[in-house]
Amino acid sequence: MLGSQPQTGGGKNAAAASTGRPVLSVRDLSVTFRTEEGSVSAVDSVSFDVEAGEVLAVVGESGCGKSVTAMSLGGLLPRSATVTGSVLLEGTELVGASDRQLRGIRGDDLAYIFQEPMTSLNPVFTVGRQIVEVLRLHQGVSARAAKSRAVELLTLVGIPSPARRVDEYPHQLSGGMRQRVMIAMALACGPKVLIADEPTTALDVTVQAAILDLLRDLGKRLGTAIVLITHDLGVVADIADRVVVMYAGRIVETAPTQELFDAPQHHYTTGLLGAVPTAGRRASDGRLQEIPGLVPVLTVQPDACTFAERCPAASDRCRTSRPPLAPEENPGRTVHRFACWHPAGSEEDR
């Protein structure tokens, strides 16, 4: 199984991009929703750092809390959500910040790209106007300057004949082109952090690769940290420097990409990797394997491993005691941490 992992493009970039100082630092982030059926714990004590120019992938099955984590960073969750913990963007605390302060940061230092390029752009405005809007909002430039900057941005993201495209409406562009427009809009103000929530999931396989290349390229060139949310391990292998694996609202494992593919420790991770196809096949073929069972929806976080129900190695200890996300210091390697009482690689590795 381990012999069949794909080529990881991200591993080698990690050292080059690493500056050692995180631009985004998330600590003990928890999100609870009040619903009519009671409260739902969607994210539980999540912590991670992202450095400038780095691509951090967040993976996990549907319902693991990836999007909720992403939205909570910029204060985009509905009022029914309670967010606790800390999110530091270049030293500025975002949890509990005022709406006004968050609006000043969103689209400027912290930008988003979403899954659905078909519906994420407003159908009644030209793409140019939608890019101009964000430039004028945060940079206070003139309409004319913003327009020519919009054309530059469209050029940057590889849209052909940008001077004409800038005046077109979203429905006149293909899905891939729209996602490029979204990227142009997100990068317009030179964000420190770009959060991309499944940016290629809705696109054709051939287009996916091009969009991912573009994202990685621009991230490295502009020094933008990218938090890439995906459930496609092929995507992770392609562009991520580091990976965070989430399950039922918790981080269960985190490691540099190559390391994670080489020596996964949490049984959820090994389950996911079991599905990864051989090198050469990727993208839509690389969807997470069906691990038997479902992601639980939790009201309270139990003192147990939330994966125990589905884990082949589960013991009584797993069901009665929560495994901490323990650091495994590995000289010469970036930190690899996992929350498991009986790690998968324990016999062979140590």
Binding site: L76, R106, G107, S120, P123, F125, L137
Partner: peptide
Amino acid sequence: GADYIRTARAKGLGPQTVIGVHALRN
């Protein structure tokens, strides 16, 4: 509830613009 409203908010637009321009026009 549309995706483009989420985009508008993610851009940092205030409620007047999000509601009065992006949502109302549609």
